[in-house]
Amino acid sequence: MKRFFAVFLLFFAFLYPSLARADIPDPPDLSGWKVESIFRVDVRISELVVIYLGFETLYSNPNEPGGFALVTKRHRPLIMAKSDPKGDRMFKNAVVDFYTRKEREGILQKRYGEADTIVCQKWRVVKDAKTGHPVRVGNVEVWFLDSTGNPKTVLNQKVSIAPVSELKSPDFRNGILAGVKYSVGDNYQIIRAEHVFLIMALKKEKKS
C-alpha cells in the first residue's frame, strides 16, 4: 500500500509539478507597505482597440527606507474597442471619454479586485555616498507564479517581459499582438486576449 501511495504521488508529481511544491508560500505579504504608483499593463492593438491585462504596483516599505517591491497582477483580459469616429466629423473624443470614464474605471477597478499576483520583486536601494544616486544593495527576491499555477521564489533572476502575439492564422495573416509574457528562467505566465474576442473587437472597428 505504501509503495502504491509513493508511486501515486510520484505519478502526480510528474504530471503536475505544482502538487509536489505545495509548500511554496503565497506571494509576499506587503501589508503596511505604501503604494507609490500603479501602472496598467495593456496592449494597444490599433488606434481604437486596447487590451487591458493587469496592473503593476510599486510599493515602498515605510519601516525600511529604500525597501521597494514591484508587484505584477494579472486579471482576465478585457478588450475595449472604441467606436471609429471617422464617420462623424464632429466627434469629440473627450466627450465620450468623460461620459464613459466612470464605467470604464469601474470595470477596471472590479478587475483589479479580482486580479492574481504573478510576480513580486523585492529589493532595497541606498544612496551612494559618492554620487548621491540610489544603488541597489543585497538580493532581488523574486516570487513568480507560472501558467501551471506553480509558484516559486528565486534570487536575482531576471523577470523577462515580452509582447506575445497570436500566431499567424487565416484571421490574422500577420499574427497580432495580443498580450504579454512574463518569464523567469524556463517558467512563464502568458496573459493574452482570446482569439475570438480579438476578432470581435477588430470587426467592430472595420464595421464602424
Binding site: 462623424d88 466627450v95 486576449a193 474576442f197
Partner: peptide
C-alpha cells in the same frame, strides 16, 4: 453633417460612441 444644424447632445454622442467592452 450639417454645420448649422442643432448639434447632437453630448450624452447621445457618448452613448452612440460608447466603447464596446469585450471579455
Amino acid at each position: 453633417f450639417g454645420a448649422l444644424d442643432p448639434p447632437e447632445p453630448a450624452a447621445l454622442t457618448a452613448e452612440r460612441h460608447k466603447p464596446r467592452i469585450i471579455g
